[in-house]
Computed example of a mutant assay.
Amino acid sequence: MRLWNFWFSSFVLASQYNPPRFIELLMLTLAIAMLAIASIIPDRPYLVLGLSLVVGASISILVREAIVPSPQSRVTKITALLLLLISFYGFVDLIQTL
């Protein structure tokens, strides 16, 4: 029971400390899960949902970095742009296979 209490307290603290970054992390975690499911089960809704979550998280990261830059601003922006480009490439590939 202590282990669950520790994880719950950590979860609450992380969400209160920096809510936008927490939501972005949650979106990227769900995107990884959806893309993993899409690689196992070749079903388009999982792929579309995973790519949509990556696009949303990347745009959120870019907007947050534009408003309040972090110490690792350059690396964060490059990573977000890379994720955005890869997800757009995934959407284009998905549209071409229709």
Rank of each mutant, 00 (worst) to 15 (best):
V92W: 13
G56V: 05
A80Q: 01
P45F: 13
Q72P: 01
L51R: 00
E24F: 09
V75H: 11
L82R: 10
I32L: 15
A80F: 03
V75W: 12
V92N: 10
A38E: 09
L35P: 00
Y46Q: 08
I41W: 06
V48D: 01
L47W: 02
V55C: 05
S70F: 00
I41G: 03
L85H: 03
L81G: 11
L47G: 01
V54E: 02
I40Y: 13
R74H: 11
I59T: 12
Y17G: 03
T76M: 05
D93V: 11
V68E: 15
L25Q: 14
E65P: 02
T79K: 13
S73G: 00
L62D: 09
L35V: 02
M27S: 11
A14D: 05
V92A: 14
T29R: 11
V63K: 14
F91K: 02
E65N: 13
K77Q: 08
V68S: 14
V63H: 14
F91L: 07
I78L: 09
P45Q: 14
I40G: 07
E65I: 06
D43W: 15
L83Y: 11
V54A: 01
P42C: 08
T29I: 12
I37R: 01
L82E: 07
S70E: 04
Y46L: 04
A33C: 08
G56N: 04
T76W: 01
S70P: 00
A31Q: 06
M27R: 09
I59W: 03
D43E: 11
L82M: 13
I95D: 06
L28T: 09
E24K: 08
V63G: 12
E65F: 00
M34Y: 06
V75K: 13
M27W: 08
I32F: 15
I37S: 00
V48T: 13
Y46R: 04
Y17A: 05
L51Q: 02
A38R: 03
V48M: 05
M27V: 11
V92E: 12
S52E: 02
L25G: 15
I67F: 10
A66V: 06
A80R: 01
P71G: 05
P71N: 05
N18G: 00
L28H: 08
F88M: 14
L25P: 02
A31L: 11
I78F: 08
A80I: 05
P20W: 04
V75C: 04
L82S: 14
A36C: 06
L81C: 14
L49C: 10
I37D: 01
E24M: 10
T79V: 12
V55N: 07
P19Q: 04
L28M: 14
A36M: 06
F22T: 09
R21A: 11
T79Q: 10
K77M: 04
P42I: 08
L94A: 03
L84T: 03
I40M: 11
V55H: 09
L47Q: 04
V68N: 15
L26G: 05
I59G: 04
V63C: 08
A31K: 08
V92P: 00
I61K: 09
I67T: 07
A36I: 05
